[in-house]
């Protein structure tokens, strides 16, 4: 299986702060790679760097055969990268429909795909013409993910989708992410909830202080409590 995304020695500065210190990891095609680490480890900045929102100051980023380090964000998106930010960033003044219209760059919606999305996220169908700003937090997260998958993307970058959501909604999101994964999508997922990570992840990269400190199979990390304790610095219970 080839690698869809490869980061080699990526450094990122935000202002005068040096956030990423030579990040190296790969995301295999068709798999879900979990990016774990404590708060402030650099996970969000890594996704933003891949997306071109916080351009790298050094290193290489290869995506689907192209070196995209330093590309403008729209070019990276057009290459087939979908992004779900931590803040969800739905356009609250626009309706659910209008949010998805903007995300469907190539034209009218594919009805089959839209029904597939409604299958995961029934509230989006129900509130199709409502302003996104009036949705609940969980519904906004659904919309944010739907926006990233309304058209097929080669790679999905998803930043902490379960953060702050009720357990029932988290379970629905896990189901959704598992279904997206089964559809063959390649996903790089930042997640604090270890249970979510082990339910979805195929491979894992753990970050600390702006660098990768562990790479391997998710199953291996999942089965090794001592390694979890060492890498994540907290007991498993704290991540549940």
């Amino acid at each position: 299986m080839s690698d869809m995304l490869t980061l080699r020695g990526v450094h990122t500065h935000i202002g005068r702060y040096h956030i990423l210190h030579g990040v190296d990891f790969t995301v295999p095609e068709g798999q879900t790679t979990m990016l774990l680490g404590r708060n402030g480890a650099g996970k969000t900045t890594t996704l933003r760097t891949i997306m071109g929102l916080s351009p790298p100051s050094a290193g290489e980023i290869d995506f689907a055969g192209a070196s995209i380090g330093g590309w403008a964000t729209p070019d990276i998106a057009m290459r087939g990268v979908g992004y779900v930010p931590e803040t969800m960033a739905v356009f609250s003044d626009l309706t659910v429909k209008e949010n998805l219209v903007l995300a469907a760059r190539s034209g009218p919606f594919d009805p089959t795909r839209l029904e597939w999305i409604f299958g995961f996220f029934p509230p989006l169908k129900k509130f199709w013409l409502s302003r996104a700003g009036s949705l609940s937090g969980g519904q906004k997260q659904m919309l944010s993910i739907a926006r990233a998958i309304v058209e097929p993307r080669r790679l999905l970058l998803i930043d902490e989708p379960t953060k702050g959501l009720a357990p029932a909604i988290v379970m629905a999101l896990i189901e959704c992410l598992a279904e997206i994964k089964r559809s063959g999508a390649t996903i790089l997922l930042v997640e604090q909830n270890f249970r979510v990570a082990e339910a979805i992840g195929d491979t894992v990269a753990v970050m600390d202080n702006g660098a990768i400190v562990h790479r391997g199979a998710m199953a291996a990390l999942s089965g090794d409590g001592a390694l979890q304790e060492r890498l994540l610095g907290l007991s498993l219970e704290a991540h549940q």
């Binding site: 929102l53 729209p74 998106a77 356009f91 003044d93 219209v101 903007l102 926006r147």
Partner: peptide, 24 residues
């Protein structure tokens, strides 16, 4: 219009508009 949607979205969050592939 779609142009208007883009402008309204861009006023709210221009970074996300770029992440959707539009050259803001």
């Amino acid at each position: 219009t779609r142009l208007g949607l883009l402008i309204r979205a861009g006023v709210e969050n221009r970074e996300m508009v770029e992440a959707l592939g539009y050259r803001i």
